[in-house]
């Protein structure tokens, strides 16, 4: 499992975490290339189906990251996201997709360093956990 490179799909809010990721890049904060960023306008638009589809397409972990409580540009999208992620934890957890594999974080636009830190930590932990699904062919 030493050379297992996890794939992480990150749904990041345009107004905060996406900007933070950009900032991390421009300020030469290095973070592992395992993460694929998908920019969304708000965490409130992350349909739980997107998360499920990511896992069913072979993602080993999913990150949903948006604005801190009180900072959502659409007022409460992040609170809706929080309930949806809670629901997903409850459902996917039963099928071996534990909550370590589906994370919700709040990372503000100026938190480039925090973003790089989160990705580092997540990649290391998912590497230790191994692939989310060992035989995708059985997941019909």
């Amino acid at each position: 499992m030493d050379n297992f490179e996890p794939t992480i799909i990150a749904f990041v809010c345009n107004w905060c975490t996406y900007t933070a990721a950009d900032l991390a890049g421009t300020s030469r904060q290095k973070y592992p290339p395992n993460v694929r960023l998908i920019r969304v306008m708000c965490t409130g638009m992350v349909d739980p189906k997107y998360v499920v589809k990511a896992f069913l397409s072979g993602a080993d972990a999913v990150l949903v990251s948006g604005c801190h409580p009180g900072d959502c540009h659409y007022i409460n999208g992040n609170y809706k996201a929080r309930r949806r992620v809670r629901l997903l934890h409850g459902i996917l957890g039963r099928f071996g997709i534990d909550r370590e594999r589906l994370r919700l974080t709040w990372i503000g636009a100026s938190d480039g360093i925090e973003f790089a830190k989160v990705i580092h930590a997540m990649v290391a932990e998912i590497k230790a956990l191994g692939p989310a699904v060992s035989d995708m062919k059985l997941v019909i």
Partner: peptide
């Protein structure tokens, strides 16, 4: 219905890494 409401100070344990 749980997905029809949401509050600021709830489910703090969902977030974090």
């Amino acid at each position: 219905f749980p997905l029809s409401v949401f509050f600021e100070d709830e489910f703090q344990d969902v977030t974090g890494i």
